[in-house]
Amino acid sequence: MKKITLLFFLLSVYSFFSSAQVAEVAENPQKPYVLLKDGSIVSVLKPIVVCDSVCYYVNRYSKTTYRKPLREVEAFSNRSDVRWMTKQEFSSIGTSPVRGYFLSIITIYPSGLGIFMLIDISKRRRIHNYFQYSIYGN
């Protein structure tokens, strides 16, 4: 009986803190985010790509890629690393394979250069996925 009471207590405490966390996220969305015209705020991952009046982003929580016309977008948060791209550059990144993982891993130590290379590669990989999504969908 004591165990059940304890379990009930722990679950209720967990539930209380989870609901507080959800409310906090709704009030202060985690940066970077996209503010849409309908008032919804979507926390996203860097980078956001703007190409040809269309905006591409990945939802931070569901990891789903979205494609929105710019007329539906109200604002971007500061430091959201929005990339404006020409169609040519977007397709060139989207169609060529992303390379450099090996080089970045071997240069992590001792200089630390590899960490920055990995940041660039991961962003390039995401832009590559945006292009694939624009062509084939999910």
Binding site: V49, R83, W84, M85, T86, Q88, E89, S92, S111, G112, L113, F116, M117, I119, D120, K123, R124
Partner: peptide
Amino acid sequence: TPQEKNRLSRSVATGYYLNAV
């Protein structure tokens, strides 16, 4: 120029690191 337009979207983390070094 059209070539420089393509450069606007490039990632610069590695560039920043090399510049700092």
